[in-house]
Amino acid sequence: MSLPEQPAPDQAWHISASSLTVRYGRRIAVDGLDLTFGAGVHGLLGPNGAGKTTLMRVLATASPATGGSLRILGRPSGDRHHLRAVRRRLGYLPQRFGYYARFTVREFVEYVAWLKEMPAADIPGAAQRVIERVQLGDRAGHRMRTLSGGMVQRVGVAQALVNDPEVLLLDEPTVGLDPEQRVHLRALLRDVGAQTCVIVSTHLVEDIAAACSDVAIIDEGRVAFRGSVDQLAAAGSREDSGDSAVERGYTALLRQHRTRVVAAR
């Protein structure tokens, strides 16, 4: 089966989705999303069960979309031909980060680098760099089973970063981190986002405010809002619930979106 010739990769967007739909049986988890992501740090915000994790899984090529079109790094996501090449340029931290407890931190990161088909000669150096980047240099030789939850989460970030990905997908990366580590991770994300498309899914609004250049709010599988963090902060008013401008903006935008949806029915 020969594939139709693809147009030249659209360099403007790392990820572009149109009418993206994911169904699980009769339940629609992602409902006709139109979204594009370029370089920078993008926040994906929404209540629990909004479809964030489903969307992240599809973007990470962990599960297929059931409708619409999705292009990752200029290639259609259903294209098995280019899947392997695309995956070499992806970094992914799933919501439930699984690991081999008997491996040391370095071994696990090197193993993931090998799975991402990095050249063997580059692997030790790259692993060392990302381990230091997540401040685990002194733990590199420790078994994963001996790490605390926050350290494991940082290994998760390190393995996602090890291949210098062009698209970095982090699902709830700040879970289990103490405040200091969280601040460090946000700085790291801003740094990586200078050249890379970073998508951070979270339900913690303050993460978005501190680390992201722009935000997408997802609710019931649809985009409720897309814009900059400033726009998000400006959307709220005194009457909206929340402890910060960004939180008030979030609740206001979510309420407006739900009103529109009800009206449309």
Partner: peptide, 9 residues
């Protein structure tokens, strides 16, 4: 399984 389902190799 999920993480390693997204790798190139």
């Amino acid at each position: 399984t999920e993480l390693f389902g997204t790798v190139a190799r």
